[in-house]
């Protein structure tokens, strides 16, 4: 009898512990609370794509996506260096965000209807516009996509590129063989070793691989034109509206800073600006930050940490990659970057 009772008690105890582990229901701003408590932002980035996210020889992360993480960390914690970067493959990235392994995903991720809805995610304003591009060996003498029928194409799994090229080649009545490898280094080296005739990815990713991964960069050419729309943006979980607002408005702050001439260097001086838009953004007047759960100086801290959007772009896409801004210019200069009103 005693044994029986002990067994019963054990089962009861075990089930109690399990029930006790029931997930906590969403309180106000769980992500913000967690980030503040941790004193560190956990940001999912690409494993290695020049211009977006790449670790240098000392292990320091650089890139446009990385700067977005830094700006958010600065706005929330007052210090752009309080970020832990988690390099993610194209397949792992969404589960990592959904499961809470990362606070935000700033990883060359295209906004699509499916990702926005079925994945339970929210995407901020696009921080980069690009489209599927193709790189081939120069000696093949190829100048346009129509000549790629029958080619072997190296492509990341689970990317929008994978679907784009399937649709593109089908619409042109051409065949191709996709070679699908998740690890970014392996994939690029498969192309460089000649396993594939073509390397396909967001066009903005190609110059970096051409410059740094090819033995002789001039042996390769990037074909003209983009073959899809790829608005890249930072994503967060859809169940935390406040955190979504924070990531969204930090990006808008960077756009507006460029438009209003606020730079990393002059941000302190600009606090005394006569333009009420500028002083409101920098927290010298009013308290915009409070409305999204942050301090007064949130935008000031973000700009101090990474500069305005134009500075972020130039830092990552200037020499040696030299990618022209094109549609990534401000709307006032004919581009698509449009900061929403800071009111």
């Amino acid at each position: 009898m005693r044994k029986f009772l002990m067994a019963a008690a054990l089962v009861a105890f075990a089930s109690n512990t399990i029930i006790g582990a029931e997930p906590a229901h969403a309180a106000d701003g769980p992500t913000l609370t967690a980030v503040k408590k941790r004193g560190e932002l956990i940001c999912g980035v690409h494993q290695g794509r020049y211009g977006f996210a790449i670790a240098d020889k000392k292990g320091k992360w650089k890139g446009l996506d990385v700067d977005v993480c830094k700006a958010v960390a600065a706005a929330v914690l007052g210090d752009g260096n309080k970020v832990k970067y988690i390099p993610l493959g194209s397949v792992q990235r969404f589960p990592a965000l959904q499961s809470g392994q990362v606070d935000m995903l700033s990883r060359t991720t295209t906004i699509t209807l499916t990702r926005d809805s079925a994945l339970g995610l929210n995407f901020g304003p696009p921080t980069f516009y690009t489209g599927t591009g193709f790189m081939v060996r120069k000696k093949l003498g190829i100048t346009k996509v129509d000549q790629l029928g029958g080619a072997a194409i190296c492509v990341f799994p689970g990317s929008t590129t994978e679907k784009n090229i399937a649709a593109l080649f089908k619409s042109k009545g051409m065949k191709m063989t996709p070679v699908v490898i998740e690890n970014s280094k392996e994939l690029v080296s498969a192309y460089m070793a000649g396993r594939c005739d073509v390397l396909a990815m967001d066009q903005a990713g190609l110059p970096g691989h051409q410059q740094y991964d090819a033995k002789t960069p001039s042996d390769h050419v990037i074909l003209d034109g983009v073959y899809s729309k790829e608005p890249l943006a930072a994503g967060v979980r859809a169940d935390d509206d406040q955190w979504f607002d924070i990531t969204k408005w930090v990006v808008h702050a960077l756009f507006n800073a460029e438009e209003w001439g606020i730079t990393q260097a002059n941000v302190d001086k600009m606090k005394a600006s006569k333009d009420p838009n500028v002083t409101r953004l920098l927290g010298a007047t009013g308290n915009l930050g409070k409305k999204i759960g942050l301090g007064k100086s949130w935008a000031y801290d973000a700009i101090k940490a990474v500069g305005n959007y134009g500075e972020v772009y130039d830092r990552n896409w200037g020499p040696p990659l030299n990618l022209a801004r094109g549609v990534n210019e401000l709307w006032t200069k004919g581009g698509l970057m449009y900061g929403f009103p800071m009111k």
Binding site: S90, V91, R93, F94, P95, Q98, T114, R115, A118, L119, G120, P157, G158, S159, E162, K163, V180, E182
Partner: peptide
């Protein structure tokens, strides 16, 4: 696994 991973990522139904 290769195809499963890609499908997982395209549909989000992990």
């Amino acid at each position: 696994v290769n195809i499963g991973n890609t499908s997982l990522n395209q549909t989000g139904q992990a």
